[in-house]
């Protein structure tokens, strides 16, 4: 069980959309935007309010990579590893981020809940390759050095 405030927030979002079954995705998107992840309890709660069985709601939420049942860090970093970025050495970018954050394969969020790292197949900005985003802000033509500077800046902002 989550705190009551979570359910109140979910109710608020549901009321904005309505309780028709077709609103499942927009509702859970809004919940995810608000909490930066989709609390599993809230998916079950929304399913119940919309009259969708839990297994079906889970099916929808797991079909889309975008939904995450795990709490994400304050900064969500998406590194593009699509064809264009890959040939322009996005692997080196990724390695540098691993070094900066201590994350790796199978570990996506730092313990201090500051950074979450995701690799995506294309950000639709191949001309800026290799590219990454930090909370949807685009950082173009990245190099390992620029990644280092970026993290200095982000960590510095936190330590102030």
């Amino acid at each position: 069980m989550l705190e009551q405030s979570y359910y109140d927030k979910a109710d608020e979002i549901i009321n904005q959309h309505g309780t028709e079954q077709r609103f499942l995705i927009p509702i859970i998107q809004d919940i995810q935007n608000h909490y930066r992840y989709l609390p599993p309890e809230l998916l079950s709660y929304v399913a119940k309010r919309l009259g969708i069985n839990e297994a079906k709601a889970y099916s929808v939420a797991t079909f889309y990579e975008n939904f995450s049942f795990e709490a994400k860090g304050k900064y969500v970093i998406r590194v593009c590893d699509g064809t264009a970025c890959h040939v322009r050495k996005s692997t080196a970018i990724l390695d540098q981020i691993y070094k900066e954050t201590g994350l790796g394969k199978g570990k996506h969020t730092t313990e201090d809940m500051l950074f979450t790292l995701e690799t995506v197949s294309c950000l639709g900005a191949c001309g800026l390759a290799p590219v990454l985003t930090v909370n949807d802000v685009v950082h173009a033509a990245m190099t390992p050095e620029k990644v280092h500077e970026l993290f200095e800046e982000l960590k510095g902002a936190e330590n102030k």
């Binding site: 599993p40 069985n53 839990e54 297994a55 797991t62």
Partner: peptide
């Protein structure tokens, strides 16, 4: 009308399972 199981995940990871 029970709906205890459904597909979860997608592509080659698809699996029939209960919620969560």
């Amino acid at each position: 009308g029970v709906g205890a199981i459904n597909f979860a995940f997608r592509g080659s990871n698809t699996q029939v399972m209960p919620a969560f």
